[in-house]
Design a protein around this nucleic acid. Structure first.
Lengths: 187, 187
DNA sequence: ACCTGAACACCGTTCAAGT
DNA sequence: ACCTGAACACCGTTCAAGT
């Protein structure tokens, strides 16, 4: 058996959402690319909300796995944060796509509840990881301040991606992130 | 004559986009609210792209007018920047909406060209104003660095709005912006 | 000048029917 | 277990027809 139909649907849909958004995602288009009829997709994902939620959930799982690997690869905060900002650079490089959950956050008002829940979990996963990276290894620390800083970094990175995307230029992302760094937001 | 039909379409559509995005915008829904048939909207705006472009253009014009008024009202950089961040707080307060061009930027990949052009102009208008505010009144200055800083502030604010929107809490926006400020990004 | 009804090809969804 | 065709109410768009 070649690739699973369900898997094929998910990977096709994920790229489509990153490129054009959740609302622009079409069952009939996915079906055409996967090589089935659109009604078949409903067998695997009863509603579009089910598909969206599954996509976001896996997106978060992939992110978490990647970020956790980074913790074992790099030991210092600087390298870890550099790898983090590099990660959000990737989709821009690949045909000017965006973070899937960033796009979905913008479409939040039109998102089914089950998708919203998963988008929120993506934010949580980012904040959790950033808190770990920002927390001092020894000595006391202001937990509330660190959590704020983590959320601010995540928001700033998502914003950088959003604006760079409109510009259609990775260099814009790089310049904005560099400015965050020299300004002292990311450090 | 009561309010113009065209005006009524635009104000209704603007709120709808800020709440649920450009892609979720429906001619038939607007028509119902305005009290005409959906075909009538095509008389004023031949395509959805025409409507989207008109919305973004006016949005930018309104922003520019507001920001220019701020320059006469406040003389110091601190007050001006505080008013700026307050401006992007407003849509969140009003039923958790977002900056219209911020939403559109996320949907960029599925946007007609004429809308993209106007969304880009919104970014330009923000950067232009921020450059003016950040530029020192006397003495030399690094123009390139100031432009970078302006773009970074705009991106960070859009990101803060995006994330706070997902949280459905203006307090999150406030906390993120406060962190930008203490980190030294906005000053 | 402004609006409408009807038709078109799209969309997600449902469901009875196939293997 | 997995897929399909046909129908449904939606969508933007077009256009001939109304005032």
């Amino acid at each position: 058996m070649s690739t699973d139909t369900k898997e094929s649907i998910m990977s096709t849909a994920r790229l489509a959402v990153q490129a054009r958004g959740y609302n622009a995602l079409s069952f009939r288009e996915i079906a055409k690319e996967v090589g089935v009829k659109s009604a078949s997709i409903h067998y695997h994902f009863p509603t579009k909300g089910d598909l969206g939620a599954a996509l976001a959930q896996r997106y978060t799982a992939d992110l978490t796995a990647y970020l956790d690997r980074l913790l074992t690869q790099f030991d210092d905060r600087k390298s870890r944060l550099a790898s983090y900002t590099d990660l959000f650079r990737l989709p821009l490089l690949k045909e000017n796509r965006m973070c899937m959950c960033g796009i979905m956050a913008a479409e939040y008002g039109d998102l089914p509840t089950e998708v919203r829940v998963e988008v929120d979990k993506f934010t949580d996963a980012n904040v959790r990881w950033l808190i770990e990276v920002l927390s001092p290894r020894r000595g006391s620390s202001d937990a509330a301040a660190i959590k704020q800083r983590a959320l601010a970094i995540f928001a700033a990175i998502e914003g950088a991606q959003l604006i760079a995307r409109g510009r259609g230029d990775v260099a814009v992302y790089d310049a904005i992130v560099a400015t965050y760094r020299t300004a002292g937001l990311i450090s």
